[in-house]
Computed example of a mutant assay.
Amino acid sequence: MTLLSDRRIAFLSNRGKGLKEAIPDIFSNDHHGYYFQHMMQNFNDQCAGKYAAPFKKLLGKILQRIAYAATEQEYQDAMMAMELNSADAKEWVLRNDVDH
């Protein structure tokens, strides 16, 4: 079996160096996404000390809604919820490759 077939492939990664550029070069019609657990860990690490624990937990739940949105409307609603709770956290999301 060859990887270069008619079947669509979805790649999931932890944003390792080179993958973001290499996957589209080789598999231009396929999707590359990031592991949500890795994104959540990055969010927690980068926001350490910035938010109180209960509020950080709320933002994490909203981040999960954003990541798992199945429709454009669900995505927009979740992004609005993030902005209403923390414009700073919404900016973090936008800086972290929302297309993936």
Rank of each mutant, 00 (worst) to 15 (best):
F11Q: 05
N42R: 14
K50G: 00
S5T: 05
A53M: 06
P54Q: 06
C47F: 12
E74I: 05
Y68R: 02
D6H: 15
P54D: 04
A89Q: 07
E91R: 14
E72L: 13
A81T: 11
D30Y: 00
D88N: 07
G49V: 04
A52E: 07
R95E: 11
E21N: 08
G18Y: 09
D77F: 01
K61G: 14
D30Q: 00
N14R: 15
S28W: 05
F27N: 03
I66P: 09
N29T: 10
R95K: 15
R65I: 01
Y35H: 08
G60P: 02
Y75H: 12
A10N: 15
H31V: 12
Q64N: 10
R95Q: 13
N29S: 11
A53C: 09
I26L: 12
I23L: 09
F43M: 04
D45H: 08
K57T: 07
S28T: 08
R15Y: 10
M39V: 13
A67P: 15
T2H: 11
L3Y: 13
A78F: 01
Y75P: 12
D77Y: 05
M39S: 07
D77N: 11
T2S: 15
F55K: 08
Q37I: 06
A48V: 01
Q73F: 13
A81H: 11
L12N: 08
E21G: 06
D99M: 09
F36M: 04
N42H: 15
H32I: 12
W92S: 00
L63P: 00
D30R: 00
N96M: 06
E72V: 06
D77E: 08
M39W: 04
L84T: 14
K17W: 13
Y75G: 09
R8V: 01
A67Y: 12
G49D: 01
R7N: 09
D97V: 08
K90Y: 03
D45L: 03
Y51N: 00
H31W: 15
A53E: 12
D30E: 01
P54F: 06
G18I: 04
N42E: 12
E83L: 15
D30P: 02
I9N: 04
A22N: 11
S5R: 11
A87W: 04
L58P: 10
Y75T: 06
M1A: 13
E83P: 00
L4Y: 09
K90N: 04
G16S: 02
K50N: 01
D25Y: 10
F55R: 09
D45Q: 10
M40Y: 09
I26P: 03
A52L: 06
M79R: 13
N42L: 14
S28P: 02
E83H: 13
F11T: 03
C47L: 15
D99L: 07
S86V: 02
V98W: 09
T71P: 03
L58E: 07
L19W: 10
D97H: 04
G33D: 04
S86P: 00
